[in-house]
Computed example of a mutant assay.
Amino acid sequence: MDSLLKHMVDMTGHRDHAMLDLSAVAAVQELAGAQHTRVLSLAAVGPARYLRARASVDDGGAPRLEDEAGPGETLEAYPELAACLAAQGARAEAEQAGRHTMWVPIWRGELAATILEIARAAPFTAAEIHTIDGIVGVYRNFRNLLEYSERDSLTGLLNRKTFDDQLARMLQCAAEQESPLPGQPERRQKGTGHEQWLAVVDVDHFKLVNDRFGHLYGDEVLILIANMLQSSFRAHDRVFRFGGEEFVVLLRSTTLENARRIIERFRAGVENHHFPQVGTVTVSVGFTCIKPYDSPVVTLGHADQALYFAKTHGRNQVCHYDQLVADGLLATVASNDTAEFF
């Protein structure tokens, strides 16, 4: 009982989705005696649905956030889970080669974008299922509260209201990774090249889409692009809708080459996607490194400058602020008065 209460307190003490996921897998792993536990995201890309791990824990290990990019595994690879979702069921179970797996969808109305997966050698007893249901109930209710206050109603992405807090956390993280002052201990291994990144995405000629096809098709374009953003970036990156046709992505610790590759893959995916009725849609992207002692206004201004350069030099491209400055194509400024974010 003490362990259960401790996990419940830990789960409800977070205001961050990633930390809540870690608390949930830790609680289920211990209390269900599992060998492996994962929190999975379920996302649609066109007619197909994909599963991608957000957090996981193995027997004897520490809970961890997953660093997956790309859409993940197809739902078709999990027929028991697919049947459960089609029937809006409470759980699905399967046994293969002596490994028993249970999937518990986290329903929000008629939608289940999050699924808990629990695997172990022994079958699940009625008492263990009862305990799991209790943990899942707390996790579901608290997650839904966070979702309600943090999500954009059209796309399901994080909304503008949550951006400031998320960026402040990344700035703090970047500051903690900086080299220490003289006399202070070293806080990270130098030379890894891992940084935090901010990307601003804008749909090219979106007003023409609304004017030509109507706002319903315009909204569908935004929803599809939001789905592509979620499937293109890693589970622990953060994607926001700023309003209109503007989106912002916070990429957690990664290299410049990897950040550019992920962003470019998303841009190409949009260009090659056929949007119903509308046809071809493209996006322009500007991105910048999040420097620990820059203010949020300066960081956004840099990304917005890179985006403005992309849109005024042909659109449908990805521009890196620091590279533009190094090439003499942009002048370094403290902030961008033309930015539309404030």
Rank of each mutant, 00 (worst) to 15 (best):
A92H: 05
M19Y: 06
H194G: 02
C289E: 15
N316A: 15
A27G: 07
G244C: 12
I290L: 08
S231I: 03
E271M: 14
T74P: 10
V325P: 10
R15W: 01
Q96G: 10
A334H: 11
G314A: 11
Y217E: 12
F240E: 13
E68M: 06
M228W: 06
L40D: 01
T288W: 01
H274K: 12
G218L: 03
H14D: 04
N316F: 04
T162E: 00
L31K: 10
D237C: 06
L146E: 13
Y217T: 00
A82W: 09
L307W: 11
V278N: 08
P185M: 09
G156A: 11
A55E: 12
P71F: 09
V278L: 08
G269W: 01
P296K: 03
R91D: 07
I225M: 07
V221P: 02
E76I: 11
A122M: 09
A259I: 02
Q88C: 10
A226K: 06
V28G: 09
A77N: 14
D10G: 00
H320K: 02
D58L: 11
H7V: 01
E76P: 02
D133E: 12
S295I: 04
F275M: 12
R234I: 07
S23W: 01
A199T: 04
V200M: 09
R108W: 02
S295W: 08
C319H: 03
A303S: 13
D304E: 10
L181R: 14
F242D: 08
L65N: 07
V297F: 02
D202Y: 08
R160S: 03
A18P: 01
P71M: 05
Q230L: 12
A168I: 00
A53L: 02
P185A: 12
P105N: 06
D133V: 01
E178A: 15
T255P: 06
L111W: 00
G156K: 01
A226C: 09
V281I: 13
G134H: 05
L330K: 11
G33T: 09
E271T: 13
F242P: 04
T12L: 01
G301Q: 08
A26G: 00
Q277F: 10
L158S: 01
Y78Q: 13
H130S: 08
L154Q: 11
S295Q: 14
A127W: 00
F242E: 07
H130G: 06
L300V: 14
F342R: 11
H215W: 05
L31R: 13
E271W: 10
R64K: 14
Q172L: 13
D202M: 08
R140P: 00
D219A: 01
R252C: 00
V200P: 00
E176L: 13
E150D: 14
H302R: 14
P123I: 02
R99W: 05
K291Q: 14
